[in-house]
Every structure is written in C-alpha cells, then in structure tokens.
Amino acid sequence: MQCDWPLLGPLQWMRYVNKQVKVKAGKDEERRGWLLTVDPVSASLVLVDFKEDGGASVQVVMGHAVEEVEVLQEADEETTQRLQSSFLPAKTRRLDP
C-alpha cells in the first residue's frame, strides 16, 4: 500500500500526538507506543513506552520507512503530562495559553 504519511503536514500529524499508535514500518515490522512528536522535516515519529521501573524507552521510526499509522487510544491526562514532560528541561517548561 502506498502511504502518504510524509505528505500529511503539521496539522494532520498533530492529530496523532498524545495517542497510542500502532506503526507499520519496514517489512512486516510493527510497533506500538505513545506518539510524542513527528519531525516536520523527515516525518519521523517518536514513540515512547513507559516501563514499570519509571523509565521510558524511546523509539524513532524514520518517516521514509512508515507504511501505516493507526490510532489505538487517546492518552489520559496523567499519561499526556508524563509524555510531554519527558524531554523538556524543567526551566523551559511552560504552559501555553
């Protein structure tokens, strides 16, 4: 199937942010995680998986390899917070109006 993921653009990619997604990329490779962001330059996805010990594993799927992205569920408030604060240094963290 021809996928137009890299052509979707920022407004469409935003719809996937903070959702748990299933991504097909490469030959029969499939992965799941919470979508943190999509690089608007390379269309690469950043997926985060929270582990029981409090750590997180981060997976970057290159935009050129993406075949299919499917939303599984929305994050609750706690997960969203946890997700969005993962990579922000505390001092630059701010709440946009």
């Binding site: 653009g9 920022p10 407004l11 990619w13 935003m14 962001t37 690089d39 981060v58």
Partner: peptide, 22 residues
Amino acid sequence: QLPIEQHARSVLRETFLRCLLS
C-alpha cells in the same frame, strides 16, 4: 490557518530536536 500550522510545525520540530539531543 497559516499561523496555526506554523505553530504546530514549530512545536513538533522543537520536541523532535530536544528528543534527539536527549
């Protein structure tokens, strides 16, 4: 819509760059 799209692009890009740096 343009400023909204530009802001979305900027938020996505900044988060991605921070993630790479991390």
